[in-house]
């Protein structure tokens, strides 16, 4: 196995997903097969190759520092499941 239950559980915690007891073995098996497929990338030597982050051979465009946006408050708050007149609301965050 290239990936085990414990690792899958850790990944799920990071990704904020729940993996139930019933599905864990199926998920481990499927992720393991994906990792096996992925591992083929190690077949070729890439020591002197520069990583390619984006297919565009271009550089970042720069935006002038001007305010172009107006308030979207009503629209944004109306889209949220839980909000009052001013804020998005979430279960209490403990700092």
């Amino acid at each position: 196995m290239l990936i085990n239950r414990k690792e899958v559980q850790q990944i799920a915690v990071l990704a904020k997903l729940n993996v139930s007891k019933d599905e864990i073995d199926t998920i481990v098996t499927s992720l393991d097969s994906v990792v096996e497929m992925i591992n083929h990338i190690n077949e070729v030597d890439t020591d002197n190759v520069k990583p390619m982050a984006n297919p565009m051979d271009a550089v970042q465009r720069l935006r002038a520092d001007v305010v172009t946006e107006t308030s979207n408050k009503e629209v944004l708050l109306s889209m949220a499941t839980n909000a009052d007149d001013d804020y998005f609301l979430v279960p209490t965050v403990v700092e």
Binding site: A15, L17, L31, I38, T46, K50, M52
Partner: peptide, 26 residues
């Protein structure tokens, strides 16, 4: 999401994500 989270997680970034980007260039 799980595969991607795994590939970016500590210890795997160079071996997978960076490596894959290099393959992409090739």
């Amino acid at each position: 999401i799980m595969v991607g989270t795994w590939a970016l997680s500590a210890g795997f970034y160079d071996a997978y994500y960076r490596k894959a980007q290099k393959i992409r260039r090739l």
